[in-house]
Design a binder for these strands. Structure first.
Lengths: 157, 157
DNA sequence: TCCATAATCGATACAGATTATCAGTTAGTA
DNA sequence: TACTAACTGATAATCTGTATCGATTATGGA
C-alpha cells in the first residue's frame, strides 16, 4: 500500500524509489530534489523519468503540485486538507494544518464548482526575522517579496 | 496619476504603453499577453523591456505577481486585498473580492511575520461545468487539476 | 542651449525548468 | 516462456524568464 497502489502504473524500481522518497516527505521537494535523492540507488535515472512519474502521480491525485514558489514546482504527497507557508527569507515551505480557517460564501460555491481551496502565506520565520533585525533594528520587513531573494537556497532538508 | 507615478521610473513611451494596458485590466495577463498588446503601437518593443518593466513595477508594489497558474506568471494591477479563482476548465482567472474570509490563529502570527495571505481557489465556472456535464451526466469533476488541460487557451480576453 | 551622465532600449545570448522524441528494455499477463 | 504495452534513459527541443551589451534618450547643471 504505497503511492503507486491502484494507480494502474507499473511498479518499476525507479518509480518505487521515487514513491519511497515522497511518502511521508514533509519538505515539499522539487523535481530536482527528487532526482538527487533517487540517484543514490539509481545512478542512471533520468530527469524525464522523474518528471513523468511526478506527473502521473499527480494526474491520479496521489500527490499535489504546489505553486507557492514561483520559480519551480514543488510536490506534496500529503493530499489531505492543509495549507502552506513560504518563508521568503530562507525559501522553506511549511505545512499549516491548524489555525487557518477559510470560509467561502454560498454565492461562490453557487457560481463555481470548487475543487480545491489553497491558502498560501508568505512570511518570515523566526530565525529569518532575527537575521533581518540584525541589519536594521525593529525591522519592518519590506512587503514586496520580489527584491527579497531566498538566502538559504536549498539548504534546508 | 498612473502606475508609473512616483515610482522613480522614467516615463518612456514603452512603459506608458505597458502601464496603460495594465491599468484597470482584470484579465491577469501574462508577460506574453502584455507584449502582444503593446506590440500594436510599439512593434519593435522587446520582451526584455516588458519583463523589466513588470519587474520594476512589482518591486515598487504597483502590481502583483500571481502564482495561481503553475505554467507562467500572471500580473495583477489591483494590489488591494482580494483573492483569485482559477477555472481549471478554461484557464480563466477571476477576482474574488467578497465572500472569502480567512482567519489566521494567533499562533501562526506569533511564529511568522505574515507578509501576505493568498487564497487560490481551483474550480469550474458555469459554462465549463455545463460543457463537462455534456460528456457525463451529473458530472462529478475529477479533482486532480492536471490531466485537465485548459481548453480555451488564451481565448478569453 | 549644450553637454555629461545615468537610465533605458532592443537585440540577443543565456539559464533553468519542463516536455517531447525515440530506440531499446522490462513488467505483467496469457 | 512469450508477448506486448508500458516504461526507461539519453537527448533534443521548448518555454519562460534573466543577463549582457552597445546604442539611444532623457534630464539636470554649466
Amino acid at each position: 500500500m504505497d503511492l503507486l497502489t491502484n494507480t494502474g502504473l507499473r511498479r518499476t524500481p525507479q518509480r518505487l524509489a521515487i514513491a519511497g522518497f515522497l511518502e511521508g516527505n514533509r519538505d515539499h521537494p522539487t523535481a530536482e530534489d527528487v532526482l538527487a535523492a533517487v540517484r543514490h540507488d539509481h545512478p542512471t535515472i533520468s530527469c524525464a523519468t522523474v518528471y513523468r512519474t511526478l506527473g502521473a502521480l499527480q494526474e491520479r491525485g496521489r500527490i499535489r503540485e504546489l505553486t507557492i514558489d514561483p520559480r519551480r514546482r514543488r510536490y506534496d504527497p500529503d493530499t489531505g486538507p492543509h495549507h502552506h507557508l513560504l518563508c521568503v527569507g530562507c525559501g522553506k515551505v511549511t505545512d499549516i494544518r491548524d489555525g487557518c480557517e477559510l470560509r467561502l460564501a454560498a454565492a461562490i460555491e453557487n457560481e463555481y464548482l470548487v475543487l480545491e481551496s489553497r491558502v498560501e502565506i508568505h512570511g518570515l520565520c523566526r530565525s529569518c526575522r532575527r537575521a533581518e533585525s540584525g541589519g536594521r533594528p525593529s525591522a519592518e520587513a519590506s512587503a514586496d517579496g520580489r527584491s527579497r531573494r531566498h538566502r538559504n537556497e536549498g539548504g534546508e532538508r
